[in-house]
């Protein structure tokens, strides 16, 4: 086995096999990989990280494909981390995001990696953030995180991205859906996909109405609503420009610093959480299961004992 640290020069040179292998090692979360990830981290911070989220079937993978093709025309190198759910029972996963991205195959300037959630909630997994680091260090200028299809409340992606896109598809609910709290609030840019469909204009109008009622996260950035169609290619160039405008805005206004701090804080917590979880592997938690089931201990008491408090 090649030590992970020895993969770093290849990763920095953009060698695909090394990039791929280091992501695997990081995903496994072995001790062996930690010095390499620490070394790698010094080389990150150059990429523009774009989070793309939305309900299942809203067209995220298709959008990623269209955006990537447009960005390739502009000469950019793109890394993609596409996340799909793990089975809660077997722990296995079937990942199909590549099915929609086949046109990107064979382009050495596009790197696609599929990842399973491995039981983490919120639409992201710790390993996805490590994969973003690897792609960033490998020189991919845009790194796209495509979350699992989310419901109304999985907003983790906002704590991992510089620019967050929320994809809504037409015909999935009325304007009341749009004024609820949660996922729609996190968008820097709203995308209405499948806008070749007749009710897309209605969805765009609903979102715009919601945005007028809303207090934006940032008073100087009113999230734009862009209609796109993977079918006709409509709106894709506009969306790419809008993403660049948001990037430029973050940097010229200094707001990027808030984002970077938020991302750093979230990563520290997520990693700490995983370290704690690894320490209390299942069989140790199991020693309290009977007592909690029989109401001799509360879950809170059992957790405190597990932590040695």
């Amino acid at each position: 086995m090649i030590p992970s640290l020895e993969l770093i020069p290849g990763v920095l040179a953009g060698r695909q096999r090394d990039v791929a292998r280091l992501i695997t090692r990081a995903e496994a979360g072995d001790h062996e990989c930690r010095p390499a990830m620490t070394e790698l981290y010094r080389h990150t911070g150059k990429a523009h990280i774009i989070g793309i989220t939305g309900v299942p079937g809203s067209g995220k993978s298709t959008l990623v494909k269209s955006l990537t093709i447009a960005a390739r025309h502009a000469g950019r190198r793109i890394g993609i981390v596409a996340i799909d759910p793990s089975s809660p029972f077997s722990g296995g996963a079937i990942m199909g995001d590549r099915i929609r991205m086949n046109e990107l195959s064979g382009d050495p300037n596009v790197f696609i990696r599929s990842m399973a959630t491995r039981g983490s909630l919120g639409g992201l997994c710790r390993a996805a953030l490590d994969a973003v680091d690897v792609l960033d260090a490998a020189g991919y200028e845009l790194v796209i995180i495509e979350t699992v299809g989310v419901g109304q409340d999985e907003v983790e992606v906002v704590r991992a991205s510089h620019s967050t896109l929320v994809v809504s598809a037409p015909g999935l609910g009325d304007d009341i859906q749009a004024i609820k709290a949660g996922i729609l609030e996190i968008a820097d840019i709203h995308v209405v996909s499948k806008c070749d469909k007749p009710d897309a204009q209605r969805t765009i109008a609903d979102l715009k109405t919601m945005l007028m009622l809303d207090m934006p996260r940032d008073p100087n950035w009113m999230p734009p609503v862009v209609g796109t169609s993977g079918e006709t290619g409509k709106g894709i160039d506009e969306l790419l420009k809008t993403i660049q405008t948001h990037h430029d805005y973050l940097h010229s206004s200094g707001r990027i610093q808030d984002r970077l701090r938020m991302i750093a804080e979230s990563r520290i917590l997520k990693t700490a959480e995983e370290l704690v979880r690894q320490r209390f592997v299942r069989h140790r938690a199991d020693s309290f299961t009977d007592q909690v089931t029989q109401r001799q201990l509360s879950p809170y008491q059992a957790a405190q004992r597990l932590l040695g408090e």
Partner: peptide, 21 residues
């Protein structure tokens, strides 16, 4: 962890995907 790449792929597509994955 299973990655399914869909129908009608070329041998090149499959090998490129396998390396990245």
């Amino acid at each position: 962890d299973v990655i399914y790449t869909g129908l009608h792929r070329s041998s090149e597509d499959v090998v490129n995907a396998a390396i990245q994955e």
